[in-house]
Design a protein around this nucleic acid. Structure first.
Lengths: 130, 130
DNA sequence: CTCCAATACTTACGATTAGTGACCAATAAC
DNA sequence: GTTATTGGTCACTAATCGTAAGTATTGGAG
């Protein structure tokens, strides 16, 4: 356990809520409500992937940002990192059971973004023309 | 219409996907996969709210960031801003029909964050202790 | 032996964004 | 005149994002 063990209980009288500044779910929300996280989970939903493959399929992500995203997701227990002692190195990332429970929430969000392109772009045009 | 009217069609042979660097859904995903956006949508799901009330209930958000978040959501057609010519001023924000379609995706994400607090915190402790 | 390729990172740096605290405008109540 | 109220803006600092270059390892080409 860490030096300071965190209590998992809400303040008396009410449940935890992301609206509460001190609720641990806030940092979780910040982690999962993130475009790269959503994209990584989307790709890993199909099975384990190597670092380089992730980088290729997540068009536009840099190595540094991908590394950081994966590390944070690993820390929060959403994926595992497996390094094989080969040359050149091979590292595989795979969703944990906890990470797999994220597939549905994330896919709902991604589907929304993909399905509402026309409305959003039209709204933007209208706003910018005022 | 804007000076440059955007085409809403995917490249030939494949559908739009958030994984594509040039897909418009990417900017939408970046907008909605955001903690403040998720929290604003959560609160406005219950009906229109004034700026100050939003600021109070979204514990910890600064005025500047709330203004920016609301402006961006307004631009993307997800909410409306109504200013009443009173002293002191009163401004109300309300989800549009498009914005209301976001309630479900966002609430799924928020629920995930609130329900998986113990697993995430335990994973973090374990990771930090290695 | 030297040079290069391959992979998964690091590191240094500049750019972008988030967040803070002070200030403003208008008026009604005191 | 002074104060309180509300929804901002502005200037500034801190944090984060993203880019380009470098590192380590070793098998293979020449």
């Amino acid at each position: 356990m860490g030096i300071m063990t965190t209590k998992y209980e809400p303040p008396p009288g009410r449940d935890w809520s992301v609206l509460s500044k001190t609720c641990p779910s806030r940092s979780s929300l910040a982690r999962i409500a993130n475009k790269w996280t959503a994209m990584v989970v989307t790709v890993l939903a199909d099975g384990p992937q190597r670092f380089g493959d992730l980088r290729t399929v997540l068009e536009g992500i840099s190595g540094k940002v991908l590394t950081e995203t994966l590390r944070d997701l690993e820390r929060d227990g959403m994926l595992t990192r497996t390094a094989y002692a080969e040359i050149p190195p091979r590292v595989e990332y795979e969703l944990t059971p906890l990470g797999r429970t994220l597939i549905e929430p994330v896919s709902v969000l991604v589907r929304w973004a993909e399905q509402h392109i026309p409305e959003v772009l039209a709204a933007r045009d209208a706003y910018d023309d005022r």
